[in-house]
Simulated scan of single mutants.
Amino acid sequence: MRKIIVFFGLLLLLNACDDGDFTIESFDFTNATTNSCNSGESGFFIYKISDNETLILQLPEASFVNTITPLGEPRIISINSTNKVIYRLYNGSLSNNVICTTIPPANPTVTKEWNALSGNIEISTSVNKQVDENTNATEITGYTHTIVLRNVNFDTGNGNQQLFTELVFGDFVTSSLRQGDFDVNIAQCGSDNSFLFKIPVIGSSTPANVPPQAMTLRIDPSLFVAEVTPENQPRTALMNGSSNFLRLVYYNGIISNEFLCASETPTFPIPIEEFNAANGITNISGIIEVTTTIEYEIPTDDQSPIIGHRHKITLKNVTMTKVSTSPELEVSFNLGSIYEFGEFVVLL
């Protein structure tokens, strides 16, 4: 009799644990590539494909901010009616065209769909850089957003649910704003040699991640003396954040010489991202060099009349740091061992 009682007790305990709310299933998208649909439009989402399965995260594109996160402090987004996580199983192999199409294809078709009821989406962001081995210049190419789903509870249909305490979605990479072609002439405001700038040409063929921008150099005008500098003996100064100060600014609209020379700051366009030069260290970094030569009237020979002095500005090992309200999250890049800012002529 005692054995019978123990048997029924165990049976009741097992039935109490299996209330029909959870199923034991899993999926793995670790090795799958992250793609996106509808970038820059409504209905943006990212997804991964593994054979005939897909895992979809539908959340605002602005969730992927190009700002690094502190170590161990990811951005946390709650799963709800706006921020969705969806798992789908199809009856055939998938392609990106199938997922992103606005009109569902006849094949393959969805055979199973799970929708997340609750949980959190954690996003940790780091910066990606590439190095030019010839010049030692670094460039910010984009940002990697590592996504982990926490305590995600899926509605698997028929009253069943599946809970994942941790589900690694993987990485999603966004591009950064990129520099334009600064191989253009130096401009200045009238005869003011203390403020020089360069504006790359932005045209219809310019990539979307190369916005209107300007590189401006506030520089001590005493570096532009009307005397030829001895060979290999340029005049030098250091970046100091005031009288010698380099900025790279990206704008949300087309800019002009008049815009940069305006005595009052225009209301449009406005800066969307700004990098400032770090202060220099003697013989190490943030160095400004000015080399001065004679400018002759064409044709150039010993008999040609002198019309002015040509000043060539070279920057050495200048680090540009993105303006941020949190210094510990600052992102920077280097213009390289030698960066030719450009030349301009001061007429006699």
Results as ranks from 00 to 15, higher is better:
Ser324Ala: 13
Gly9Glu: 01
Arg88Leu: 01
Asn185His: 02
Phe154Tyr: 01
Asn136Cys: 02
Glu274Tyr: 06
Val173His: 02
Ser263Val: 14
Phe341Thr: 13
Ile24Lys: 02
Gly159Asp: 08
Glu166Ser: 14
Gln233His: 14
Ser42Gln: 03
Leu196Arg: 02
Phe259Val: 07
Gln58Ile: 00
Tyr87Lys: 00
Val318Ile: 10
Ser332Trp: 02
Cys261Met: 10
Ala208His: 09
Ser50Ala: 05
Gly336His: 08
Cys37Gly: 01
Ile281Met: 02
Phe275Ala: 01
Ala226Asn: 15
Ser326Lys: 15
Gly190Arg: 02
Pro234Tyr: 10
Glu41Met: 05
Ile255Ala: 04
Thr229Met: 14
Ser191Met: 12
Ile77Trp: 00
Ile99Arg: 00
Val290Cys: 11
Pro70Trp: 15
Thr125Asp: 02
Phe341His: 08
Phe22Arg: 03
Tyr47Cys: 05
Val152His: 07
Ser243Leu: 05
Thr144Asn: 13
Leu217Tyr: 06
Asp51Trp: 11
Phe164His: 14
Thr300Asn: 07
Asp192Thr: 03
Leu260Asn: 03
Asn232Trp: 08
Cys261Ser: 12
Ala16Ser: 08
Arg88Met: 04
Glu328Leu: 04
Gly280Leu: 10
Pro74His: 08
Ser326Gln: 11
Tyr87Cys: 03
Glu343Cys: 01
Ile147Arg: 05
Ile313Trp: 00
Glu343Thr: 05
Asn107Ser: 08
Ile202Gly: 01
Phe197Pro: 03
Gly157Thr: 11
Pro212Arg: 15
Phe259Gly: 06
Leu57Pro: 13
Gly280Arg: 07
Pro70Val: 10
Pro60Lys: 04
Val290Lys: 12
Glu231Ala: 02
Thr144His: 11
Pro207Arg: 03
Val331Gln: 15
Gly336Leu: 04
Leu89Arg: 06
Ile272Leu: 01
Glu227Lys: 04
Asp181Glu: 07
Gln179Glu: 06
Thr321Cys: 03
Ser126Arg: 11
Phe169Cys: 03
Ile56Ala: 09
Val6Leu: 10
Val152Gln: 07
Thr138Lys: 01
Ile202Thr: 00
Asp220Arg: 07
Val290Met: 14
Pro70Gln: 15
Arg310Met: 13
Phe164Thr: 14
Thr265Tyr: 11
Thr156Pro: 07
Val290Ala: 10
Ile5Asn: 09
Phe341Leu: 14
Ile294Trp: 00
Phe45Met: 07
Val127Arg: 14
Glu340Cys: 10
Leu117Thr: 05
Tyr90Lys: 00
Thr146Lys: 05
Thr236Leu: 12
Phe341Arg: 09
Ile79Tyr: 08
Glu289Cys: 09
Leu94Met: 06
Ile219Tyr: 02
Thr101Phe: 01
Arg2Leu: 04
Gly170Cys: 01
His311Thr: 00
Ser176Asn: 09
Gln188Lys: 11
Asn276Arg: 12
Ser26Ala: 14
Thr206Cys: 08
Ser191Arg: 11
Asn185Lys: 13
Arg88Phe: 03
Asp171Ser: 12
Phe197Ala: 09
Asn252Ser: 13
Cys100Gln: 02
Gly180Gln: 05
Ile140Ser: 06
Asp192Arg: 06
